[in-house]
Computed example of a mutant assay.
Amino acid sequence: MHTGKSDISGWLVRRASWHGWVVSAVVLSASVVNVARRTADGGMDNAIVVRAARTWLDGGSPYADPHFLYLPSAVLAAVPQALLPSQALRVLVPLVVTALLVAGWACALRIHGVWWRSRFAVLGLTALAVGFAPFGHLVRLGNWTATAVLALPLGLLCAVRGRWGAAGAVIGAAVALKPLLAPVALLFLFAGRRRALGAVVLVPAVASGGAALLMPDPAGFFTRTLPFLLRGQDDFVRLYEASPGAVLPRLGVPAGPAAALALAGAGWGTWCAYRRWRCADPGPLRIVETAALLMLSAFLVSRPSYDHYLVVVVPLLLAGALHPGAVARGPWFWLALVPQIPGLTWPFLEPETRRAFRDCLTLCLLVLAVSVAARPEPRPATAHSRGRSGSRQVGGTRAF
């Protein structure tokens, strides 16, 4: 009789998981179809990279467009898209971006030993797609941040399993496409993994250096893009930046003190990341929370810093919610996500150009939430891990 009840219970769990994945697939498919209907080229941000590749194919400089902020290797990576018609891109781009986000969520789950068919996996993905506005923004824009959303959890998964060389190669390849994950290099420095750190640096350096030799202006990234970034870009783009250095001047704070506050916050967050690493507790939380703090600290001071950058960090932290003491179990984490609930009305902040105020609040609260978790004393081991940090995970959360 006991065996029969167990079989029925297992069947119900599997059936509930299957139905949940169907619902999630419908939600994600609806998002892809909506973007394909509303955009002509797969998304505004992806179109910038594709135009740069087409300009290069026509013999021009991709850096003639000041809004092209990528390394030269990204130009070559965008060539296949440049050869496709716009009608194909309007469908393929949101589809590929969505697939990258789903794959990133799956890797984040595997870091914590969570079964991808569990109810937590299904509900978490659906919640991100429906209840986290930057997720939908990233799909709509077609921004290449989606590559980092996959690369960071994949790299950390390799590191958790002790394959630091592979982790360095994954992060380095992502930096070659978009330099967003460059701050993660500090994680390899904290861990004393010099060879893996070399991969983080050499992979994009070799890829971009080789690609630059094929450009009409090999130094265009340094002579055009970097000055544009250091100036804080143009007035239109600045309205959408979420870093305190861009938001505080809009509230009347002088630019100098605002930049100093942002830099101080980034320095404090980096110090907390180092303290989190020094905790040396077993399990994946150490690596995940250290990397998350490094990325969030960079977002505080980087220009630009947009709301969809949060998709790089939030799924990683959410996937660890089943661990005792995880950031996602604290109130600050969920309070930080409240401004990102789609459809929630905020007085005086409804215009699209004022969304950056909400994004800045979320960013600052997330830094606070993860920093609170960076305690100097070691944490007790959990059922999800064994041995020293970097050991393989056991399936402690599979039944959920």
Results as ranks from 00 to 15, higher is better:
D7S: 13
I8Q: 14
W11T: 15
R14M: 10
A16H: 04
S17E: 06
H19R: 13
G20W: 00
V27H: 01
V27D: 02
V33D: 04
V33C: 06
A40W: 09
A40F: 08
G42L: 02
G42C: 05
V49A: 14
A52T: 09
L57W: 06
S61G: 12
P62C: 12
Y63D: 04
D65M: 09
H67Q: 11
A78G: 05
P80E: 11
L83M: 12
L84V: 08
S86P: 08
S86N: 13
A99P: 06
A108W: 01
V114F: 02
V122A: 14
L123Y: 07
T126S: 12
A127Y: 06
A129W: 01
V130S: 02
G136F: 03
L138W: 03
V139P: 02
G142S: 07
V149S: 09
L150V: 10
A151F: 03
V160Q: 14
G165R: 11
L180M: 11
L180G: 06
A182M: 11
V184K: 00
A185S: 11
F188A: 04
G192N: 09
R193T: 13
R195L: 15
G198M: 06
A199S: 08
V200I: 15
P204W: 00
A205W: 00
A207W: 00
S208Y: 03
P216F: 07
A219D: 09
F221W: 08
R231H: 10
G232I: 01
G232E: 04
G232D: 05
F236T: 15
V237P: 09
Y240E: 15
G252C: 04
G256Y: 04
L263S: 10
G265V: 07
W268S: 04
R276V: 03
W277A: 02
A280Q: 14
G283H: 01
G283K: 00
I287H: 04
A291R: 00
A292F: 01
A292P: 01
S297W: 00
A298N: 06
A298Y: 00
L300A: 10
L300M: 13
R303S: 15
P304E: 06
P315F: 02
L317V: 12
A319T: 05
A321H: 02
A321C: 07
A326H: 03
V327M: 05
F333S: 03
A336L: 05
L337C: 06
P339W: 01
I341R: 00
E350K: 13
E352Q: 12
T353M: 07
R355M: 11
F357D: 12
D359Y: 06
D359A: 10
D359R: 03
C360A: 11
T362G: 04
L365E: 07
V367M: 05
L368W: 14
A383W: 05
H384Q: 10
T397M: 13
